[in-house]
Computed example of a mutant assay.
Amino acid sequence: MRRFAIAGMAALAIAASTAVYAQQGWFREHMHHMRLSPEDRAAMLDARIAAVHAGLKLTPDQDKLWPPVESAVRDFAKLRMDRANARMRAREDAQNDQETPPDPVARLRQRADDMATTSAALKKIADAADPLYKTLDDGQKRRLALLTHHGRMGGGGEGWRHRWMERDGGGPRPDRDGGPERL
């Protein structure tokens, strides 16, 4: 059950960071001409976090444990937004500087650094969420899974991966933190 709690809160972080990649997925397929502004992304993040908070229907004692969770999720989303913005700037710089060949070793090092930073941020979410999760009743845990999409596509932590594979046909995504195409 503890693994489910940590996985659920990690899913919350991932779901909250959806604002960073809003131009992907449904938006990319149906509204590819529309780019979200930083204000739009922030509003979507606020809405996702508010939806999870409201859906959990926390008791007053539980509500006292919410602020560290929200803060950790916001920090994680900011990390992802900053990283996405850095990738966009790097792509623009690469387009302007066609003479410099790509450096796969530097990209591997950057990917490793990014993974370490992401790992630390996810641990921060897990540490913040653990005390709150321990106080949730079964109904709140079920709603948490639904609100964070952890309970979709057959349950487990694979729901978001299955949707990605169905949508894109599987395989690595060059637009997401690396992958073989970026080597």
Rank of each mutant, 00 (worst) to 15 (best):
D63Y: 01
W160T: 10
R107W: 10
D63Q: 13
L108E: 11
V69F: 06
G159Y: 03
V69P: 00
H150W: 07
P68F: 00
K141H: 10
E158G: 07
A116R: 15
A145V: 03
L146H: 07
E70Y: 00
L122P: 01
M115G: 06
G157V: 05
R87F: 04
D63K: 06
D114Y: 02
D168E: 15
A126P: 00
P174I: 14
F76T: 02
R176Q: 13
Q140D: 02
D137M: 00
D137E: 01
E166C: 04
P180V: 11
D93R: 12
W160G: 12
T100Y: 03
D97F: 04
N85M: 15
R161I: 13
D63T: 04
D63W: 00
R173K: 15
R74D: 00
R182T: 08
E158C: 10
R111F: 01
Q110I: 02
G154C: 02
W66M: 10
P174L: 15
R161C: 05
N96T: 09
D138Y: 03
A84G: 05
D168I: 03
M153K: 04
L183R: 10
P172R: 07
L146N: 08
D82F: 02
T59W: 03
L79H: 14
H162P: 06
D130A: 11
T118M: 13
M81S: 10
T59I: 09
K141F: 09
L122V: 14
T59S: 15
D63C: 04
M81D: 07
Q110D: 14
A112G: 13
A116F: 14
A84W: 09
W66Y: 07
H162M: 10
G139D: 13
M81E: 12
D113G: 05
R91Q: 04
G154R: 00
Q95A: 15
P101W: 02
L108I: 11
Q62K: 08
A129D: 00
P180N: 05
P60D: 14
Q98K: 15
P102I: 04
G154K: 00
L122N: 09
P102G: 12
T117N: 12
P180Y: 02
F76L: 13
A90V: 03
R83H: 11
A145W: 01
T118W: 08
M115K: 13
R91T: 02
L108G: 12
P67I: 06
G171Q: 06
D103F: 08
